[in-house]
Design a protein around this nucleic acid. Structure first.
Length: 297
RNA sequence: GCGUAGGUGGUGGAGUGGUCAAUCACAAGAGACUGUAAAUCUCUCGACUUCGGUCUUCGAAGGUUCGAAUCCUUCCCUACGCA
């Protein structure tokens, strides 16, 4: 199995810079595992790395999608696998870096997502229904899946109905099969420290024209509704620009929303016992770990 | 100083004589997740607990009542209005 390195951690933990440093030392190329940085035009709000910050290291899967259209894990998986093949062919080391746990996992292991494509029309129709109604529908279509799905989660219910409509039933969850020999490195930051970094970063982003970025996206045709769907900075700044909330509310609520997000990320990562955690300051140790990993047979 | 409206859990804010440890929202904490994942969803959340319960609360002190967060009196505090 080819070797691959993954840098994970909550938002604002300092992954990007570390990944660049590692890439420079081991002749690597970076693949972003971030579900929002794939979109063009979403730069400041996603904290997308700049050309200058890349320091010559190739970065992949940034700006590969139009934010107007919904992107999916499966699309991401396809693009990423192809990219990794190419990097390996060039004799370089692929380094995954990003905060979307599901995306990272979908590369490292084959999660075998059901092959049913999203059906926008069906989704639009279903989105008008209440969770109870959705659940009833699913029960009729696929009683087995209905048995252990969250009755109150509209997204999941809709997807399950989508799959069941096409396949007759939702296939049982397959065991993930690894595709790569992966070294997973997590950046550990204390809760307090992370909260501080998040707040400072938010102020910085506001100062560097994040509102302008959102205005431009909207001017270029990205609907407020879609913007709010995109979450965090895009959601709250869009609400502010529509005058749904005040500036103070925006700043305060966004700050806590980002912290909540970081918490959810950590819940996801903590499940994965193969991740090796290091404080950001211990770069030397991390690099040692990486070199040792690459030397292994 | 006078008038008015208030003082309930970490916060906002219900409750206005009995079934109130206190609807609800937020914050906080713990989780779920298989083609929307920065999304979506769940649980806990006064104190103590052998997890079945136990105990103490509604600015303070008195009082009325079988019974008060809810009614009365005084005091303290806050907001607005008048001085």
């Amino acid at each position: 199995m080819p070797k691959i390195i993954a840098i994970v951690g909550p938002t604002a933990s300092g992954k990007s810079d570390l990944a660049v440093e590692i890439a420079r030392q081991i002749n690597g190329e970076i693949i972003s595992t971030d579900s929002r940085q794939i979109y063009r035009g979403m730069d400041i709000g996603t904290g997308k790395i700049t050309k200058r910050e890349m320091r010559g290291v190739p970065h992949h899967l940034l700006d590969v999608a139009n934010p107007k259209r919904q992107f999916s894990v499966a699309q991401y998986e396809r693009l990423a696998l192809r990219t990794i093949q190419n990097i390996l062919k060039r004799g370089k080391v692929p380094i995954l870096c990003g905060g979307t746990g599901l995306y990272t996992d979908a590369i490292i292991s084959d999660l075998s997502f059901p092959t049913v494509k999203p059906d926008p029309t069906l989704r639009r129709t279903l989105s008008k229904l209440s969770p109870e109604q959705l659940f009833e529908q699913l029960q009729k279509l696929d009683p087995v899946r209905a048995e252990n799905i969250e009755k109150t989660n509209p997204h999941r219910l809709i997807r399950a109905i989508e799959i069941a409509t096409e396949l007759g039933a939702v296939p049982p969850k397959a065991n993930p099969t690894p595709r790569y020999n992966a070294l997973m490195i997590g950046i550990a930051v204390s809760r307090e420290k992370l909260a501080e970094r998040i707040s400072l970063r938010l102020i910085k982003r506001m100062r560097s024209g994040m509102l302008g970025e959102i205005k431009k996206l909207h001017k270029d045709g990205l609907s407020w509704k879609r913007m709010e769907e995109l979450g965090l900075e895009y959601r709250f700044l869009a609400q502010f620009l529509q005058k749904k909330i005040t500036r103070e509310e925006m700043l305060r609520d966004l700050d806590t929303a980002i912290r909540h997000y970081a918490k959810r990320q950590m819940v996801w990562f903590k499940r994965n016992k193969t991740i090796k955690w290091f404080p950001l300051e211990e770069q030397e140790k991390i690099l040692k770990e990486v070199h040792a990993f690459l030397k292994q047979k």
